[in-house]
Each structure stands twice: as C-alpha cells, then as structure tokens.
Design a binder for these strands. Structure first.
Lengths: 113, 113
DNA sequence: ATCTTTCATTGCAAAGTTACGATAAACACA
DNA sequence: TGTGTTTATCGTAACTTTGCAATGAAAGAT
C-alpha cells in the first residue's frame, strides 16, 4: 500500500504543521528535562546533560539533535566537548506560534457538551 | 530485549511527564486542526469534523480518542451522532502547565553559544 | 605518536504512531 | 423487523520513535 504510517501534512495549513512540529519536538519528557536544564544552568556542556538526565549518551545525543532540528537549541564545539544552549530567538518564535491557540477564548466556545 | 521503543517515564518528574503527554497529544497537525475547529464552531458533531479535516473517519475517530484520553476534549452521545467539545477546564490546566516553561526567562539564560 | 576524553553516528531491536478498509454497535425511522 | 445513518473498534500495513551497544571522529593530554 501507499501512505501507511505517514502524517498527511498536505492536508493541513503551514501554520498547523509548524505548530505540530514544535509541540511534537517538546513532546517527550527527556526533551522537556533538557530544555529546563539548559534554562537553569550556567555551563551547558553535553556531558553534563547526559549526567543530569540519566539516559545513555547516544540517546541524549539523539534528543539534542531533534531539538536542534527544529531550532530550539544550538550547539557550538569547544575543544572536545560541545556546548548546547537554548536558541532564545526561536524559542520566542515558538511562543508566538503557540499563544494564538493556547489563548483561544472560552467566551466564543460553544457549550454543547 | 527489554525496554526497546518505550519512553522511560520513571527517569523524569511527574510534571515533566505531564507536560510531555500534553504537548505530544497536540503534536499532530490533524489534532491541531480539530482543536481549532472545535473552538470555532457552534455545533461540534463528529461527522462535521471528518468532513472538515479530510482524513478517513476511522482516522479522525482515533485522533479524537487521543485528545479525549488526555482530557482536552469530551464527547457526549446525541442519538446516533456524538458531540465533541473542548474541555475548557482541562485546556486551562494545560495552559497553566505549559506557561512556566514557555515563559522561562531570557534574562537568566547563559549565553555560552 | 599514542592514549584518553567527548560526542556523533551507525545499526539494530522493540514498541508506538498514522492511516484506512472492513466490520460492529447503537440508534432512528419507516 | 428491516434499512439507513453515524461512530467506534478491529485488523493490518508501513513508517516513526525510543533506547542502547558498538564504533567513529576529533581534539586535548601524556
């Protein structure tokens, strides 16, 4: 068969797809933990994240890659280690993307059930 | 092998798991579209949602089930049809759950990369 | 130059997700 | 009772995600 197991993005607006990409990216507890950690610490070396979270190093590396692929974090090589940080510009863009949905009003909401 | 393909929820706090469950639930364009639609319309019959979104009826039914399982929507049977609505109480709880993360401050953010 | 440290990539196993046809269940209506 | 309508569930196919051991790659240390 043809399109099994694949999201049909073409059925939705670009905005809907963007919102879903972002919420999906943060839709895992490890990635939430990573984001909280990156907001909380001074130095953001990859190895520290591995110790903090408690998953295997390749697993963390993969989660970091996903967060990076949607732009929420960025990394820079510093010797043998890599420093990861929140990309606050893109983090703000995500907030602006989500707020119109999150703040949809209860006033306009029909009470049919 | 043992725990392949399964999220290790026990490694994270209850709050982190809750946030991830919620963001994951809205991490699909069809479910974003359903939520937007339910906020926008007066009558919220399941069949209307199927027509609006453009995916097959069983697929929509499955997405509705997922949104319902995290409490973001609720449904009530009305004759042969089912009326789905936003559960605004839980929607607000989700907003309260997300805002501490979304509003993490750039001021406290270390600029190491 | 060799060893060590740090992180990314590869490869793989197991489970989850997405989508839909077919079917069942529940109700309305003739 | 039988027929049509509406939605949920089942079964299945294909793709995606999660996690980790093993391996690579790249830079610092000895």
């Amino acid at each position: 068969m043809k399109d099994m197991g694949v999201t049909k993005s073409e059925k939705f607006t670009e905005e809907q797809n963007k919102i879903a990409r972002m919420t999906k990216a943060i839709g895992h507890p490890a990635r939430i933990a990573i984001i909280q950690y990156l907001f909380s610490i001074d130095s953001c070396v990859c190895g520290d994240i591995v110790n903090e979270i408690g998953l295997a190093q390749p697993t963390i590396s993969q989660h970091l890659k996903e967060l990076k692929s949607v732009g929420l974090i960025k990394g820079s090589v510093e010797g043998t280690s890599v420093c990861y940080c929140i990309d606050y510009h893109n983090w703000s863009l995500m907030k602006n993307l989500l707020s119109p949905i999150l703040n949809l009003d209860a006033a306009t909401l029909n009470k049919c059930c």
